[in-house]
């Protein structure tokens, strides 16, 4: 190929190369338009978030736009009020610093889809440790005290304070015959005297050492209820656990409980009753010498399964 070969090399004397600082500074303005303005003034003046609905596509757009971009229908009159609550559909944590940011990093930028809206929009989430941030978090809007007629008239979104959440115990289906759990406590003189007051049972065999000397036990003993009630934390908090309803508890006492004895109450699943989904449990109460203090059975209704 016959073409003029051009010289591509160049002598570069770097003493002549330097840099100059400059700036790009331009004023500008943005018009929200009629629809956008109504959205902003509603945030600013009424603390209300509004959207527009496309009745054809059955979609609610937030922030609102005057035309449905899918079917091209003019939806500019179909205003809907929206609640201030929603769900996080995605998020990222910004860690680097830059002059144009709305808040100082690190901060969470999230997509929030309000309840009843079909489109999410971006905003800041505050009030949750960064490591705990997750998709699916339910949030609510916090409106700004000083307004600027921009989207920042919503200052940020914060997690909705739900009630404390608990983990329920074993359900009927999760329980298996043979499962067992227990609870141990030392019964003290204080427990006995307080129980006397609670129950009204001031029987001198519990309260009067001189009298108790004349009984076959030879000294004061605890009320029967005191070892017996130790099964309650087993059924109610361990096996089956939270949400259990105790339907029937029977106990036969085998040996006295002396002040200072350490009693272990054990419940074991022995039968599952499918018709009513009740569970029968065998109860045993032993002391520090492994002597059987009492035994019995309980019928319980375990908690429902977790969704």
């Amino acid at each position: 190929m016959d073409h003029k070969k051009r010289e591509y090399t160049m002598t570069i004397d770097t003493k002549d190369c330097f840099t100059i600082e400059g700036k790009l500074a331009l004023p500008y303005q943005y018009f929200a338009g009629r629809t956008g303005s109504r959205f902003i003034t509603s945030l600013r003046d009424n603390k209300k978030i509004m959207g527009l609905e496309c009745k054809h596509c059955n979609k609610v757009f937030v922030p609102p736009r005057s035309t449905c971009e899918v079917c091209f229908e003019d939806i500019s009159e179909n205003w809907v009020d929206l609640p201030n609550t929603g769900i996080v559909t995605g998020f990222t944590i910004v860690r680097y610093e830059e002059p144009h940011q709305p808040v100082k990093p690190p901060y969470i930028t999230a997509l929030v889809k309000l309840d009843k809206a079909d489109t999410p929009f971006a905003h800041i989430v505050k009030g949750i440790p960064l490591s705990k941030m997750k998709t699916g978090l339910r949030v609510e809007a916090v409106f700004a005290k000083r307004t600027t007629a921009t989207i920042m008239d919503i200052d940020h979104f914060r997690p909705i304070k739900e009630g404390p959440s608990f983990k329920l115990g074993y359900s009927y289906d999760a329980l298996e015959v043979g499962m067992s759990d227990s609870f141990t406590k030392t019964i003290s003189e204080t427990d006995v005297y307080l129980f006397a007051g609670i129950s009204g049972d001031f029987n001198p065999m519990h309260m009067n050492e001189e009298f108790a000397k004349t009984t076959p036990m030879g000294t004061r003993i605890a009320h029967g209820a005191l070892p017996q009630c130790l099964i309650a934390p087993v059924l109610g908090m361990k096996l089956p656990g939270l949400g259990t309803i105790a339907l029937e508890v029977t106990t036969r006492f085998k040996a006295p409980t002396y002040f200072g004895d350490t009693i272990t109450a054990t419940g074991e699943v022995v039968e599952k009753l499918p018709e009513r989904r009740w569970v029968r449990m065998a109860l045993t109460f032993t002391n520090q010498k492994n002597e059987l203090v009492a035994e019995g059975s309980a019928l319980v209704l375990p908690p429902p399964s977790m969704p």
Partner: peptide
């Protein structure tokens, strides 16, 4: 003076 529309809305008029 098209202050009553934002950019996408202004474009939409001509598209239609």
């Amino acid at each position: 003076h098209r202050e009553e529309v934002n950019q996408p809305e202004m474009i939409h008029e001509a598209v239609v």
